[in-house]
Amino acid sequence: MKRRAPFYLLLACSVLLATGCESRAFKAERRMWKAHKLAQAVYKNPKGTPPFVLQKAVDAYREIIKAYPGSLFAVQAEFSIGHLYLVKGDFDKARDVYKNLTTDCDKKGNLCAEGYFAIGKSYELQGRWAEALLIYKKIMQEYPFSAKSLDLPLYIIRHYRAEKNEMGLKSAADQGVAYYLGLKTQERGQKGAHILQSLITRCYLESGMWQDALDSLERYVRDYPDRDPQEAIFVKALLYARKLNDKQKAKEELERIVKDYPDSKLAPQAKTLLGRL
């Protein structure tokens, strides 16, 4: 046994060496998980949560920000702190936290758009729509090709639709379409022009402007024949059938898919719908 002791020691050392060290990212993810668990207590019962529970969660996130400054974990932690104050109804404190996310935008890039959106959302939840709208328009202006800015026109349309504000809805739709058309003219927008055209269509669909939606879809089919135009034709058929009650036109669109795109995934569906109409 004594002779084998060096062998067992070597084996144990080899196993330990093979395990290496836990990566920094993994440690950070563990800390985030623990902080999220603490935050869950607040989310489950925001009004009934005592202040010390909230503070515990906030402190856990602040420790992550301190330990991993400038990292994605720090950004997530800032957002989480803001969300905690938001659910507790402390909108001013939430905004103070979100403002930290809107500094150094040249380094953070589109993350700043997310930070501004969170500020806008806090105004919206507080019932201050006008201020929220100003922030949303700022995002659309300053971060034109970010994921947030591309979604915001539709977001604003949905807001007016939920409020049943017809005038606001029409105005938002027109502004959204103008915004996407403006992006299309830019060099960067030309690469994703088909996506912008789809977004224009969605503006019309979300605001109930069916004829304009049909025109936009037809334009997509005409201008982007390599970008699955059969999907646009299918949507046209559904619009004719369900919104405009024009079964004849719906049939024509479905027959167009079956005839011009027989191998597409939508062809069998189109045939089924033709049978039903």
Partner: peptide, 15 residues
């Protein structure tokens, strides 16, 4: 030992 090593899969050098 295998369980222990598997637990270290996300970390260097086993990753």
């Amino acid at each position: 030992v295998v369980l222990f090593l598997l637990c270290q899969s996300p970390h260097a050098p086993l990753n």
